[in-house]
């Protein structure tokens, strides 16, 4: 088993066998459950409302996934440093790239678990409505780069700063800023600044795509620009993480 696989395996086990990891998954499923349970009271939703619900569930999964990815990313280097487990990794016969790849693969498998957990929720709220299949497909296609991108950003900051608190706070601020167009409502989003922000914001990109494909049934071809945006975001953040992880703070 190569070093990258060993680290990825450890990261996955840390999520599924470590109490802290399971607690994060419990919190994640708690968010999705709370949202799903809110819908039970409303039995007479229109198809549009239902598509809106599926869209919002996909958005919630992306946001919750990004949040957990940020926490895991911030912990990736700085948490290991603070717990004294980073030096044994750095002094083992592995390169810093292998270490990063292992961490990145661990994060990807954690998102994989979160994605799989999200599918029953999407089915539960969306099986009677429209575009459930699209929702699941596009959550994978657009949610994955957005979530992993935020995780890699946190990982980069974690390697660079050596502090969980500092990297977590900075990443959360970026995540909140990215989600802000959604919080401030459509009025401000239609302003010139709002539109410009939407054009470069991967989080908005993913949510706008969910809106377009789940509610409006738009085809993939109309979403290629946004797909490029989220893929560029993923590539950029992985590049930043790779640069930072070349010489992580370990003391």
């Amino acid at each position: 088993m190569n070093a990258c696989t060993l680290i990825a395996k450890k990261e996955r086990r840390a999520l599924l066998q470590n109490q802290r990891g399971l607690a994060w998954l419990l919190a994640y499923s708690g968010i999705l459950s709370a949202f799903a349970l809110l819908l039970i009271s409303n039995q007479e939703l229109s198809l549009l409302d239902n598509a809106q619900v599926v869209y919002m569930m996909a958005g919630t999964v992306t946001a919750a996934g990004a949040l957990i990815a940020v926490i895991m990313g911030a912990d990736a280097y700085a948490g290991e440093r603070e717990r004294g487990t980073l030096v044994p990794l750095l002094t083992a016969p592995i390169s810093t790239v292998e270490l990063l790849m292992g961490k990145a693969a661990g994060l990807a498998s954690a998102w994989g678990i979160m994605y799989l957990l999200a599918i029953p929720y999407l089915w539960a709220v969306g099986a009677g409505g429209q575009n459930l299949g699209q929702a699941i497909f596009y959550l994978g296609l657009f949610g994955t780069p957005v979530v992993l991108g935020f995780g890699y950003l946190a990982m980069a900051l974690s390697a660079r700063s050596g502090s969980v608190m500092s990297s977590l706070l900075t990443s959360l601020i970026v995540l909140l800023f990215s989600a802000s167009p959604l919080l401030i409502g459509p009025g401000l989003r239609n302003s010139a600044v709002g539109k410009a922000l939407d054009a470069v914001n991967p989080f908005s990109g993913a949510l706008n795509t969910y809106d377009a494909v789940i509610i409006d049934s738009d085809p993939l071809t109309s979403q290629l620009g946004r797909l490029a945006l989220v893929l560029i975001w993923l590539g950029l953040m992985f590049g930043v993480a790779r640069l930072s992880a070349r010489r992580p703070v370990f003391r």
Partner: peptide
């Protein structure tokens, strides 16, 4: 090389 750092940390689970 075998290394024993000053602060002995492990995956405690």
């Amino acid at each position: 090389i075998g290394v024993m750092p000053e602060f002995a940390g492990f995956y405690e689970w």
